[in-house]
Amino acid sequence: MKAIHQLIEEQVRRWEIQRKEKQDLKPQPVITLSREPGSGGRLVAQAVADRLGLDLFHQQIINAMAQNADTTTRVIRTLDERGISMIDDWVSAAISDRHLWPDEMAKVLMRVIGAIGNHGKAIIVGRGANFVLPPENRFRVRIIAPMKKRVDCVAESFGISKEEAKRRVMRTESDRRAFIRKYFHSDIADPANYDMILNTGTLSIESAANAICSAVG
């Protein structure tokens, strides 16, 4: 698997080339995917990205883009003036609509998400992307599963006991809830925040991916 910095470098170069060639591609709505820990959401995201030819941005990539000032600057500079103005408007609207007082890091994170949304043709996993991008630019998905299935999945994936897996699931779930509550004043589990909710307790990864592809196709 490629290192995160290599994945980011390749992505930024693609965007830079598109801008230099002045490709006026109509942005496609971005799929934002929120998931319960252990639900297989990341696997669903990868399957959807592969089938639809989308760029996949998981949490670690977005964090790395936002935490390195030079990388953030390069990401923003892949946009033209109109694109930069647009993401500033999106971020301002998100802050105003939700009465947010985000710190500087949160603002940078939101601008990075906005840049990805402006380029389009992507699926963003986590980081509250569904609260940043406007309705016309995103399709919001949440992947859930029963606790037992999630615990079993984590125990098997990491080779740990079910007791430790349950602690890990609950800790991660608590962290994600706190992140969304702190930065977006919302409940990550509120169904009103999503356009589609899929339960991998009854759906296979393939079936969940098919449902998403059909919905956005």
Rank of each mutant, 00 (worst) to 15 (best):
M105D: 05
W101R: 03
I113L: 13
V48H: 01
D80F: 13
A178Q: 11
G159Y: 12
H58T: 02
G40M: 01
Y194K: 02
K121L: 09
Q60Y: 09
R127A: 11
L56Y: 08
W90K: 01
A209E: 09
E10K: 13
L54F: 12
R77Q: 13
S96W: 13
I87G: 09
H58N: 04
G120C: 08
D50I: 01
I188M: 10
V216F: 11
C153N: 09
I180H: 14
I197E: 14
F131G: 01
R167G: 00
I76A: 03
I4L: 14
R14W: 06
A145Y: 09
A45T: 01
I188V: 10
Q11Y: 05
S34I: 08
T202D: 12
T78I: 05
F139E: 00
D190W: 12
I197Y: 07
E9P: 01
A178V: 02
V112P: 04
S85D: 15
E10S: 12
F179D: 02
A129E: 08
I4W: 11
M1C: 08
P146V: 00
D97T: 06
V151G: 06
T172N: 12
D152P: 07
R140W: 05
I76T: 03
L109E: 08
R171K: 05
T72V: 00
A45S: 08
P191F: 12
M147W: 01
I123D: 13
N210W: 15
M170D: 11
K121R: 04
M86L: 14
R177V: 04
V141M: 10
T73V: 07
R138Q: 15
I116D: 07
G128F: 14
S214W: 15
S214I: 14
V91T: 06
I62E: 04
R138D: 15
G159A: 09
L25K: 03
Q18V: 02
S34K: 03
E104T: 11
I31L: 09
I197Q: 11
V12W: 06
W15V: 01
N137A: 13
R140A: 15
I188W: 15
T73L: 13
L7Q: 04
Q46P: 00
H5R: 12
T202N: 10
N193F: 13
R42I: 12
V132R: 01
I113Q: 06
S204K: 03
P135Q: 01
E136L: 11
S174I: 00
P134D: 07
I76N: 00
K166N: 04
I84K: 11
